[in-house]
């Protein structure tokens, strides 16, 4: 097994565990960023350099920053989680984990060669067979934009009234 691969997998998993157990929102965010970076490494190892870059730029860079802004606006929030409420989800997660392992282990564990897939290939695929998906995604983003703008406008009114 590839050592780098294993190491980044462990980092990703460990970081995610930290994300879901932290009390402080900012701490959780930072751990999530670490997890995302680890995932990006895994993607790189799989020959998907383009999306690894995209993961870092957009996911870790833009989306997480949005979260940071919101946390700034809201202020510190303490989400107290008592250990007892972990029981149910833990059991559920365990069951799902067992099922997952079973499904995965029933396949062959033979390693295959990894082929590098260039951004060019991705671009050709996007603007070729997946053109409609691109258009739809554009719609989606437009909708998100308009929605966020509209909600933001009401927010501005509300916040404005408080005389910030």
């Amino acid at each position: 097994m590839n050592l780098v691969y294993a190491a980044s997998a462990c980092v990703a998993i460990a970081a995610t565990v930290m994300v879901i157990t932290r009390r402080n929102a900012v701490h959780a965010l930072l751990y999530l960023v670490v997890s995302l970076l680890a995932v990006a490494v895994i993607m790189l190892l799989l020959g998907a350099a383009f999306v690894a870059a995209l993961e870092v730029i957009i996911y870790a860079g833009a989306i997480m920053v949005l979260f940071v802004f919101v946390i700034m606006l809201i202020g510190p929030s303490n989400d107290t989680v008592n250990p007892r409420s972990w029981i149910g989800p833990a059991i559920l997660a365990l069951i799902l984990l067992v099922e997952l392992v079973y499904v995965v282990a029933s396949g062959s564990a033979a390693p295959l060669a990894v082929k590098e897939i260039t951004p060019r290939q991705v671009g050709m695929a996007l603007l070729g067979p997946y053109l409609i998906g691109v258009e739809v995604t554009a719609f989606l983003l437009l909708a998100g934009l308009v929605g966020a703008f509209h909600l933001g406008r009401r927010l501005a009114v509300t916040l404005g009234r408080k005389g910030d």
Partner: peptide, 16 residues
């Protein structure tokens, strides 16, 4: 959400 998760677990178990 827990309901959804339970359902998923059951479906996967059934499929498996």
């Amino acid at each position: 959400a827990a309901g959804v998760a339970v359902g998923a677990a059951l479906v996967i178990a059934a499929a498996v």
